[in-house]
Design a protein around this nucleic acid. Structure first.
Lengths: 111, 111
DNA sequence: AAGCACACCTCGTATTCCTACCTATACCCT
DNA sequence: AGGGTATAGGTAGGAATACGAGGTGTGCTT
């Protein structure tokens, strides 16, 4: 019960990943944990969404990866933002704000 | 120049349409105009998105349609919310607010 | 008669996220 | 020694949805 599955709006996942990676190198599994924790359990990134997204972002040159040891003594693929990725994040945040602003205008329309 | 094409986040279109239709019976073409106008030209609903969405919403029992004359003397299909559609709109708005709140938490994370 | 805005529609494609499934390692408990 | 759980990575297939490109027809203006 209370097992509400929250779907991400298609298009927001990349921005969230980039934002978390912008805080410092972090591996995929850690990104999912961090997003869940910061969003107070609202978002629960599914691995079937997460890993393809990471590969996508790497392919586009927004993230770069490096294998390292994690705190728990396992191998992890640590991602960090490239210069292009930083620009991309800025653009996405900007667009997100315009977009939510525009939606707010419509939702506020009364009468 | 300045011809920025803004893509909707997948999942928001239904909510916007329901919201506009909640203001009173309106035909599809009018919905697109109204959304564009209220959002100060930020959103420009494409017909290839609009009409399939309207049919979808009607199929799900959230909108009901009726042919009538428009102001301009042409036939138009006027949509209005059903009781179910009103509930659906409430749910979508609620979820939208939770979701944008959760995204805001993440975007605000500094350090 | 031509052109434009209005008003409706469909088809195919791209993208994106999900579910379900798989592999492997480190650690804990019995 | 064996089993379970959390950690860490991955893939494959399908559903949903928005878009671009194309189409029909009407009424008004020029």
């Amino acid at each position: 019960m209370g097992e509400e599955r929250v779907e991400l709006l298609k298009g927001t996942l990349d921005m969230l990943i980039l934002k978390i990676a912008a805080l410092g190198p972090i591996h995929g599994y850690g990104i999912a944990q961090r997003v869940q924790q910061i969003s107070r359990d609202f978002f629960q990134l599914q691995q079937g969404s997460l890993y393809p997204a990471l590969h996508r972002l790497e392919d586009r040159g927004w993230l770069k990866a490096e294998w390292k040891m994690t705190d728990t003594g396992r191998e992890g693929k640590f991602y960090s933002l490239t210069r292009k990725g930083r620009r991309q994040l800025q653009n996405e945040v900007e667009n997100w704000e315009k977009l939510t602003g525009a939606v707010a205008l419509i939702l506020q329309t009364a009468e």
